[in-house]
Each structure stands twice: as C-alpha cells, then as structure tokens.
Amino acid sequence: MKHKNFAGSLQRFVQGHVVFMAFLMALAVFCVNIILNPRSLNRNAFGSILALTSLLALSGAGQTMVVITGSGIDLSAGSIMSLTAILSVQLMNGANQHIGLCIVISVALGALLGLCNGIGVTKIKLPSMIITYAMSNVITRLQFIVTEGKPTGSAAPALSAALSYRVLGLFPAILFYCVVLSVLLFVLLRHMKYGKRLYLLGDSHSVAHYTGIANDRMVLLTYVLAGILYGVAGLIGAGYFAYVTCGMLDVYTMRSIVAVVIGGAVLTGGKGTYFGTIAGALFMVVLSNCLAVLSVRDCVQNIIMGLVIIGVLTLYNRDKSVRQ
C-alpha cells in the first residue's frame, strides 16, 4: 500500500551487512582524513593504523566470545592485559632469555583470572558487569602492589622486534599475529561444537538448556579462554610498546567493547563475529587517528567518538519484535 521510506531501507541494508558497513565506514573516515590532511597518507601512518588495529582486535577476541554468550560484558579485559604486560616487562627486563616463561605466565595468569570471572558468573550467579568490574579493581591494585607503582624493565628486544618489524616497510608484524588469531577463532566459532553451542546458548539460555547444552560449563570455559586471550594480548602489547606503566592497557576494556558492538554483536548475546570485531577495531582506530591528525583536543575527541558511536548503533538497532 505504501512504499518504505528511505531511512527504513537504509537501516534494513545496514542491519543486513553490519561487518561490511563497519569496513565501509572505516574507509570513509580514512578518505576524509586524507582529504583534510593529504600528508597523513604515508607509509608510517598507514603502518601504525594497522598495528593499533591489530592490537585492539587482539584484545577484542576474548570480549567477542564473552559478548556472544549473552552473559554480559567483560570489564576486566584491559586490566588483565595491563597485569600480564607489567609482569612480563619486569621479568624480561630488557633481555631475551625469559620470553618463554613470560608466555607461560601470561597464559596461566589469564586463565586463572578468567576462571575467577567465570566462577563468579556461573556459580555465584553475580551479574557479569559486577564480578568483572570487581576483578578489574583487584587486578589494578595488584599491579601497584607488584611494582610499587613504578614498573621497571622493558620488553625483550627479540619480542619487540618480532612485533614491530615492518614487512615491506608497511605491514607491521603484529598484523600477522592478528591474522593467525582470526583464523583460529574462525575455526573455533564456525567449525567446532564449542562455537555452535556458544551461539545457541547466547541466543537463549533456556532453549539451550532444554536442548541439552551445559550452559554453565560453556560460559565458564568462555571466560577462561577470554582470560587467556587477554593475557596474550597484554604480552603482545608489552612487546609492541616496549615500556609500560601501571594500568596502561586498561583503556582496552572500553575500546574492545565498542569494537565488538560496532562489529555487529548484540549485548544480549547470540550474535556477533570476530571479523566484525576486527572491522569495528579498524573503524575506531581510523577515527581516533583522524581526530588526532586534525589536532582536535582530547576532550572534544572523546565527545565526537561518543556521538559517532551513538549514531552507528542507532542505525544498527534492530526492529522491535511483534507487539501490540
């Protein structure tokens, strides 16, 4: 009887192609950036965008899985990264001999902290926001205790080199790790029973329960895996930046959540992909890079970022279900 209006069909298109849209938006912002400041089109800037995107995408891996479970968001992501980064730097202390040990410690510590989160959510039945927020506070304090507020040491040169080396002078080596991880996650989420169950229970915990999926065990496992991924991301962050301060990577909590959401995941669970998160990460990095190039002041930058995110999510917002 009546034709759909333009806004409606735009929204429908966006909802159908969220990942593609995130990439497209990143591209658009990048073009604006170049038009406004042609000098920003150089190898160095390009490489640094890729590197920062990779780091954000690495930290968003665990977050993506937690969000898919539909049990909430993980507010301890950044603090776990900071902790393993600080410990690794202190242990490596500028030499190469402890790299192996650092990897083991990062993985183990991440797993342990993830386990605590998971137990809090599944056994004590606390809302994940509460438990992971509390955990992040504890972990942040822990950093100050371990380092007495002044972290010492620097990353092993071999590790730093392995991360910041530029292939062809353009592609940072950290990108390689990101690609490997995305393949691993793709296999895990798409081709293993783990991933199948994760999406199902994220859609509806109660339907999953009656289908015979052990929800609690799955959620617990997801927090542990997420913890491991944060731990490793922290180590990689340490290697990339070489020097770290307490709480330096904490910002990755919020950034990773935003990247995941811009990538098309819904916070009530059951929807989202790691490619989406990568696209979201790219968008965030390009946008903040653009604002930095335009030398917008920090606080204004935050406001613009906030507004853009609200705008994007409004486009994503799904139709309400059938209600009278």
Binding site: M192, K193, Y194, K196, R197, Y199, L200, D203, S204, V207, A208, T211, G212, I213, M218, L221, G270, K271
Partner: peptide, 21 residues
C-alpha cells in the same frame, strides 16, 4: 533459537552432543 538460522536450529541437537572441541 529465534536469532539463529533454520539450519542451526535443525542441527542444535547434534551440536549439543560430543566433545566441545
């Protein structure tokens, strides 16, 4: 599972069985 595809719904019973990995 209303968000998931028809295919995933039909095979959810199979997904629930067997090892996670």
């Amino acid at each position: 599972f209303s968000l998931r595809t028809i295919e995933e719904n039909l095979t959810a019973g199979d997904a629930a069985l067997g090892g996670v990995w």
